[in-house]
Computed example of a mutant assay.
Amino acid sequence: MDDPVRQRHSSSFGAAAPAYAEHRPDYAAAAVRWALESAPGLRVLDLGAGTGKLTGTLIALGANVIAVEPDPAMLTELRRVLPAARALPGSAEKIPLPDASVDAVLADNALHWFDMAVAGPEIARVLAPGGILAGLWNVMDNRVEWVAGLERVSGSAAIGPRDTATGWRAATAGLHRPGTGLIARFGSPEQAEFPHGQRRTADSLVATLATRAGVLVMPEPERQATLGRIHAFLASRPETTHGEFTLPMLTGVLRVRQP
C-alpha cells in the first residue's frame, strides 16, 4: 500500500469512532500477557490506541497504561469509554513521552499503519532497555468453513489477508524487513496466536465489518452493495441466521525486544 492510500485508510476511522468502539472486539487476555511476559516492568504505552480496546484489557491486567492516539474523534471516544485512563494526543512518529519511560509499547491493529522508518526510532527512544514492542491483531479463523465463506463473499476490502488466521503472519512479515526501522533496532521477531471469539448477531457482524478501513473509504453505492452481500450470506447460513453466535477468532501477536 503506497503512502497516499495508506494515509487515506489510516485516517478513515475517526468518522466511525462510536461504531468502532461499539463493534470492534477486544483482545484475548492470554495474548496480551504473552506480549508482556518478558518486559522489564508494567509501564505500557498503547500506541495508536483507537477507542481503547487494548487499553481496557491492559488496565484489567494491572498495567500502568498510557494511551496515545492521533485521531481526535477516536481519542474522544477512548476518553468517554475509559474516563480514568491517561490518554494523550500523539502518533507513532511523534510520541509525547520522555526517553526510556515505558517498558513495553503495544499497538493493536495499528502497527501496519505506522511509518516505521520514523516510528521505529521513536519507539526505541521511549522504550527502556530490554523493553518490548508488540503488535496485536484480531483475525477471523478462516479455518472454520463458514468463516472462509464469509471471507470469499466479503472481498479483500472488508476481510483482507491480514484479517484471517491463514494470512496474518505473512501479511505482517513486511513490518520487519530491512529498512522498516525494526530489524536495525530490535531483535528477531516472535509470533504467536491465541484463541479468541466475539459474540455477534448477523446485524452486529455486518456493523463490525463496516468499520474496516477498506469499507469506510468505499464510494457509498459500493459500500452498501458490499454490506448487503455480507448480510445475505449471513442470513443464508445456519450458524449465523438465528440470533447470537460466536465469531471464531484468534489474537495474533508479533513481538520484538529492545536490545
Score class of each variant (00 low, 15 high):
Pro221Thr: 10
Trp113Cys: 03
Gly120Cys: 08
Ala92Met: 13
Pro178Glu: 10
Arg152Pro: 00
Pro129Ser: 05
Ala117Trp: 07
Ala16Met: 07
Pro195Ser: 06
Gly120Asp: 03
Ala134Gln: 02
Val206Leu: 12
Ala202Val: 13
Ser204Gly: 01
Tyr27Trp: 08
Thr76Leu: 07
Val139Pro: 06
Asp103Ile: 10
His196Cys: 04
Pro161Met: 05
Val215Cys: 03
Ala184Gly: 15
Gly181Lys: 07
Ile123Thr: 14
Arg229Ser: 15
Ser91Phe: 05
Arg223Thr: 09
Lys53Phe: 09
Leu36Gly: 01
Ser91Tyr: 08
Gln224Ala: 12
Met1Ser: 13
Pro238Phe: 12
Pro72Arg: 05
Asp26Leu: 08
Pro129Lys: 05
Tyr20Ala: 04
Glu77Arg: 07
Glu220Tyr: 00
Ile183Asn: 01
Ala104His: 09
Arg33Met: 12
Ala128Val: 14
Val253Ile: 11
Gly174Val: 02
Met218Asp: 06
Asp103Cys: 04
Pro219Met: 10
Gly187Val: 09
Asp26Asn: 02
Val147Ser: 02
Met140Gln: 12
Gly179Pro: 03
Arg152Lys: 13
Thr246Ile: 13
Arg8Met: 13
Phe245Val: 03
Ala84Asp: 15
Asp2Ala: 05
Pro25Thr: 09
Ala73Ile: 08
Gly52Met: 13
Leu247Asp: 05
Met116Cys: 01
Ala157Leu: 15
Arg223Gln: 14
Arg79Thr: 14
Ser11Cys: 01
Arg79Met: 13
Arg80Asn: 06
Val68Asn: 00
Ala67Glu: 11
Leu47Asn: 01
Leu247Gln: 07
His9Leu: 15
Ala87Gln: 07
Ala170Phe: 03
Phe114Thr: 00
Arg177Pro: 00
Ser101Leu: 14
Glu190Trp: 13
Glu93Gly: 03
Ser12Glu: 04
Val206Trp: 12
Trp168Ser: 01
His9Ile: 15
Ala232Ser: 14
Val256Ser: 00
Asp203His: 06
Gly174Met: 01
Asp141Thr: 10
Leu247His: 03
Ser38Gly: 12
Glu122Phe: 09
His23Asn: 13
Leu42Asn: 10
Thr211Ile: 13
Lys94Arg: 14
Ala119Leu: 08
Ser156Val: 14
Ala213Asn: 04
Arg6Ile: 06
Pro89Glu: 12
Leu97Ile: 09
Arg185Gln: 10
Gln224Leu: 15
Val68Gln: 00
Gln191Val: 15
Arg8Ile: 02
Thr208Pro: 00
